[in-house]
């Protein structure tokens, strides 16, 4: 079978020990929690770290806390735990839904919230064995200098493929990030950057230590829609997260996030003017679909061609809006 590359094994007993190691050796270390993304990538020699830093013992990062102010979730909470959690299902059903749609039951049992948030970007030219990539001539994300998706491109356009991230953006969630010197909080909306090689703001030595969804996001009308060839196992070829605050006077505010197209989730702009005061109905869905279609530019970085995925953007936006609005 495909083997793992040789590495040294580090299993810190607590967060401080982990951060202390990373303070000095972040560049040579790969942090692994559930391993469902990292281990296949290791087998493909996409990462060749000196150390594997295993976070499995860091029980302090495994929690779900509901409070008046917010819901906070530790990054080591598994996706199936999120999908099953009663409070999350009640208050943030789109998050529970997204978690329940990740890959397969086994991968949801192993994979963590933090892992899915920090999932490496994916591309048909990247997620392949060393042999295959050698035959390709490698690519600029790993071992090479050229992009095969955009032949003239100098920036990696591998696809952000996390199911939970677009939902977290739609719910206005934030992440706490720590390193050996301290911590900072970043909205998930600002967590991702448009560079497929490394598509988030984490700098070497930093770890995500908490995900927080504000209380204000409770009661949003929210939905998550995922396009994938098979009903299980597959990563999204397109994902849409939608959340709206709706009162008697219609929509007050809405967020629409389209992902799995480029290196970062795309938050569709100009929504406030579009939704303000309108009912959450098919007409609004149509308007949002049109806006999303205009703002999204898929590339042929994952299965299904770019034209098809582009065409599906408005379809899946309409469906998300209908789901959020409770329209059968």
């Amino acid at each position: 079978m495909l083997t793992l590359p040789a590495f040294e094994w580090l299993r810190p007993a607590n967060l401080d020990d982990a951060l202390a190691h990373l303070a000095n050796h972040a560049a040579e270390s790969l942090v692994v929690a559930g391993g469902t993304d990292a281990v296949p990538n290791l087998k493909h020699r996409l990462h060749e770290p000196r150390w594997i830093v295993h976070l499995g013992r860091l029980d302090e990062l495994r929690f779900v806390r509901e409070s008046e102010g917010a819901l906070s979730i530790g990054p080591l909470v598994t996706l199936s735990a999120i999908a099953r959690h009663e409070g999350i299902r009640r208050d943030f059903p789109s998050l529970a839904r997204a978690a329940s749609l990740v890959a397969s039951p086994q991968i949801r049992n192993m994979g963590t919230l933090g892992g899915n948030l920090c999932l490496d970007t994916r591309c048909t030219y990247y997620n392949q064995t060393y042999f295959w990539r050698d035959a390709l001539g490698f690519c600029l994300k790993k071992d090479g200098v050229r992009c095969h998706v955009v032949p003239q491109g100098r920036r990696c356009v591998a696809a952000h493929s996390s199911d939970v991230s677009p939902v977290l953006i739609s719910l206005d969630a934030s992440v706490d990030i720590s390193n050996a010197r301290g911590s900072r909080t970043v909205p998930v909306d600002e967590f991702f950057v448009g560079d497929g090689v490394h598509n988030n703001v984490l700098v070497p030595g930093e770890l995500v230590t908490r995900v927080t969804i504000p209380a204000a996001s409770r009661g949003l009308r929210a939905a998550y829609q995922k396009l994938r060839p098979r009903a299980a196992i597959d990563f999204p070829m397109l994902s849409v997260a939608f959340a709206a605050r709706v009162s008697d006077g219609g929509c007050e505010h809405a967020r629409l996030v389209v992902s799995a197209l480029g290196a970062k989730p795309r938050r569709i702009g100009g929504l406030d003017a579009l939704v303000k005061g309108r009912p959450l109905d098919d007409a609004l869905g149509e308007a949002l679909a049109e806006a999303a279609y205009r703002q999204c530019r898929p590339l042929t970085n994952v299965a299904y061609d770019d034209a098809y995925r582009h065409e599906m953007v408005p379809v899946f936006v309409r469906r998300a809006v209908r789901e959020a609005g409770g329209i059968a």
């Binding site: 692994v32 391993g35 281990v39 594997i52 086994q106 991968i107």
Partner: peptide, 29 residues
Amino acid sequence: QGCDKGDCGACTVVIDGESALSCISIALA
């Protein structure tokens, strides 16, 4: 072992009561 990397489930074992893929689990973990 069927797929090398967590795509097929032939390696499924149960860890702490939950199904898991042993081909993408590091033994020491």
